[in-house]
Design a binder for these strands. Structure first.
Lengths: 208, 208
DNA sequence: TCGTTAACGGGTCTGTGGTTCCGTTAGCAG
DNA sequence: CTGCTAACGGAACCACAGACCCGTTAACGA
């Protein structure tokens, strides 16, 4: 008794780690190719060259597996570019997002991850954490812009970064419009314009 | 032979129409409660008091049923309010969207519809059509603003309306942030600010 | 190096969602 | 009103994802 709980926690090295890695990669492939609804544990096990019992025992549900995949993805981060101006930085961010979402592998993967999150609270929490980390990485460029006097003090840096991504995801998921460099540039420009005008200042009204 | 094709096309009245209505309402309920992944035709048939054979024969797949539901939803439209200013109009729009997405019934339903669209091209097309219609209904207020001189000529009215919704859907699906009146007001304000600055003018560069 | 046992994996069973068959109901043309 | 047949619906059938059992492999502490 008292073995800690979840399998994989007592002997996390060697084979266990290898299996986890293989299954997560296989899940990524399966999600990319079949999407969230066409997902099946046996198929993932086959792709990963792993017993399907293992997949069931370690993760149990598709939702839990996706949540674990999101945690794994959150850990590996891409570095941020710095251009010296807020518009330059956020345009770089918008282009990064645009390229990711139109990538023939990453695009479908992200769609599937978001779809998975709509149906399960734990997956949704993992998705929110993933994006929170990504937003956090880019927030400093907004704070630098505040210091330079480009945007008003009190601007919510996170909200500005989110405002850049929002229209791109809207195109991807909802309107289906073309998601090209123009759309990315426009998203960055709109966010910067609004930020400069003080739209993202959180405590408006207190000082006036 | 040569009976036209799809069932329900030769005798569309009476029972057939009643069944379609009942099934669509049941599908709406099921989507709202169970989400997209937990959907099953037998359950929908039970809710609709209809043989599951009928559901299978008429729609075949979950995706096709959802697509039909979206078409049905697209047909019934909500009227648009007019306030006289672009900010007023778009704030009304943002609040409408915000209230819809936070509604305990509609919110989960829309999440499920969007999730369904990520996995199937026909469902995606139906979703795009639905939103295109909604955007089209609100576009006139942007064109009126152009006529009043509030925003520059050449502004893409559809893109402005989409810009209002985008952050709200981003909150709902991706970041998980609170989706309150403040967020709605901010979304409208950001869109108006950017529109005034000419961010949504489509043929920029041609005239300069 | 060795022993303990966590973790894996093949094989089998089972519940359930999807499919088909065929008799029944009812829309609609005459 | 009547007949033809489109469309529905109950029930049996089937395939397959998910659950389980138990023998095998290998992580890790001593």
């Amino acid at each position: 008794m008292a073995d800690g709980g979840e399998p994989g926690t007592v002997r996390p090295g060697g084979r266990t780690a290898r299996v986890r890695e293989a299954v997560l990669r296989a899940a990524e492939d399966a999600l990319t190719e079949q999407g969230f609804s066409g997902l099946d544990l046996a198929d993932i096990a086959r792709r990963a060259d792993v017993g399907k019992t293992t997949v069931y025992r370690r993760w149990g549900t598709v939702a839990a597996l996706v949540a674990d995949l999101l945690q794994d993805m959150a850990e590996q981060s891409a570095p941020r570019t710095e251009t010296g101006s807020l518009l330059g930085d956020l345009t770089a961010n918008a282009l990064l997002v645009q390229r990711t979402l139109t990538d023939p592998r990453q695009g479908p993967l992200f769609k599937a991850l978001i779809a998975a999150a709509t149906g399960d609270a734990r997956t949704a929490a993992a998705l929110h954490r993933f994006y929170d980390i990504r937003v956090r990485e880019w927030a400093p460029c907004v704070r630098q812009a505040v210091d330079r006097g480009e945007v008003p003090r009190g601007t919510d840096a996170h909200e500005v970064v989110r405002a850049v991504s929002a229209p791109l995801y809207y195109h991807l998921l909802i309107s289906g419009d073309r998601l090209d460099e123009t759309a990315a540039a426009r998203a960055a420009e709109a966010a910067v314009t609004a930020a400069r005008a003080g739209v993202y200042v959180t405590d408006r009204g207190r000082k006036g």
